[in-house]
Structures are given as C-alpha cells and as structure tokens.
C-alpha cells in the first residue's frame, strides 16, 4: 500500500491528521517521562565522578539542550522547504516549532545554571557552550518577534525563514564549542565527553528522557500547528465545515 505523502502537505489534510496523532505522542511522552525519571532516580549511582546527588539534573538538562538544538534544525529544515517549494504548511510547522524550541533552550540554561552552582560554584560563566546556547535563545526570540512584527503572514514567513536558515550555524557551533584540544588551555567549563564513558544506567535514563521530550515536542507542536492552521485559514470554506465549528450548538 502506498501513501501519498504530498496529500498531507496541504493544511486541509494535515489538520485532521495532526489531531489524530496527538494521543500517539502524548501517552509515550507521559510514560517515557515516568520511566526515565524512575530509572534516573532509583537505578543510577549516588555519585558521578566527584559530583553527588545533584548530577541528577542531567536527566533534564542534557535532553533539553539536545532538543533546543534539534528543534532549531527542524525549524531551519521547514524554512528551507518553505522557501524552495513555497509550501504554506512548511512555514506553519516552523512557526509552531519555535516556542517549544525556545522553552527547551530556557530549560537547558535554567537547569544548567542550577547544576553549575552546585558543581562549579557559579550560576553563570561565559563558557563557550553556555554563551552559544544563550545566543540560540536570542535567535529563537528574534525569530518569533520577527514573525509577530510583520502583519502579512506570507512576508513574515519568508523573512523569519531566512533568519532561521542564517541562524542555523549556531547548532554546530554549540555542539563543537567543547571541542577544546587541550582542556588545560581552555577557559571552558563544559568539556568534551564521550557516550561510551557514561555509566550505562545514566546514559539510558538520559536517552529515555530525550525520547520523552521528543514525544512531548511532537505533541505540543501538532497542537500548536492546528491553531496556526485555523488562524490562517479562517476564511476558507473547509474551516467553516469542521465539526468543531459547524456542529456546535451556538453555530447556525
């Protein structure tokens, strides 16, 4: 059986599909969060190298930081598709992704600050990774502000898409910002680490929480894109024919 994916590039087809997919992302998000936190708090060692219990902030800090970068890459991807193929839904998806990406960036900075206070003795340091993550937050805010500032949604989409593509350089920059060849020569507090050096239970908890955040992101992005679609297509005939509008007692 072949599926015509191009069918879903239209807001008319994607709106009901996104609605049907919501529980398929909500429940995994809830279950994976419960499982990931249980594993993270009860199946992991009490001490990680020289860090005590507070290292458990890792189970939200690292997945939030990963999601902040991943969602930005997703926005840039949708923006490129929108600019090249001029598809409305691509821009709508990018618009719907930005607030969630910004929230994960805030969360990465916030949790990093609390972790930093316990492990490095400071709430903030202009370390390359922290600074580049902060710049990513400013790019997210700039993207959303630019969209809000332009009344014509088509022009707003294109302008913010260009900003998203230009700002994409931040993602590899954040990733490579710890790639200091000689840690003793660098001022960076974050240091390069390898997946294989992480204790397996800690790594598994982190990965489960990442999948939980990933499911959560799909859930809220699909929820938001349905609002964006309704808002932008409100004068279309198909919106008036939707059961949630047509069959409502108040409607004629």
């Amino acid at each position: 059986m072949s599926v015509n994916w191009f069918k879903y590039s239209s807001p008319v087809s994607f709106y009901p599909l996104a609605g049907k997919l919501l529980p398929w992302f909500l429940w995994p998000a809830i279950l994976l969060t419960i499982g990931g936190l249980y594993w993270g708090f009860f199946e992991t060692p009490d001490v990680l190298s020289d860090q005590k219990q507070y290292y458990r902030i890792i189970f939200i800090h690292v997945p939030a930081a990963w999601m902040s970068m991943w969602l930005y890459a997703v926005i840039a991807g949708w923006s490129v598709i929108g600019l090249v193929m001029n598809t409305r839904l691509s821009f709508m998806m990018a618009t719907a992704t930005a607030p969630t990406g910004a929230i994960f960036t805030v969360l990465a900075l916030w949790t990093g600050s609390f972790w930093g206070k316990t492990s490095w003795g400071t709430w903030w340091d202009w370390d390359p990774r922290m600074t580049s993550e902060l710049i990513l937050l400013f790019i997210y805010i700039g993207y959303m502000a630019l969209q809000a500032a332009i009344d014509d949604s088509r022009r707003a989409d294109k302008a913010s898409a260009i900003l998203a593509v230009v700002g994409l350089f931040m993602v590899p920059l954040i990733y490579w910002s710890v790639n200091c060849p000689d840690p003793t020569q660098c001022a960076a507090l974050h240091q390069r680490s390898s997946m294989k050096d992480i204790e397996p239970n800690i790594l598994w908890s982190m990965l489960i929480m990442t999948f939980a955040f990933w499911s959560y992101s799909f859930y809220v992005i699909f929820k938001r894109v349905r609002i964006v679609i309704l808002e932008r297509e409100k004068h279309s005939e198909w919106v008036n024919e939707l059961p949630e509008i047509k069959s409502h007692p108040g409607a004629v």
Binding site: Q53, A64, I103, L107, F114, K117
Partner: peptide, 23 residues
Amino acid sequence: YGFYIGWSYGMAAFLMLLEPVIL
C-alpha cells in the same frame, strides 16, 4: 540537594505543563 534539584525539575514541570494549558 532538594533546592537545586527541586528548582530544576520544578521549572521543567511548570513550563512543560503550562505550554499545553496555554495552547
């Protein structure tokens, strides 16, 4: 470490629950 873990997890719960409520 309740203060540090509490504020970290508390903020995560607050933001991640607030977002769907606002939507």
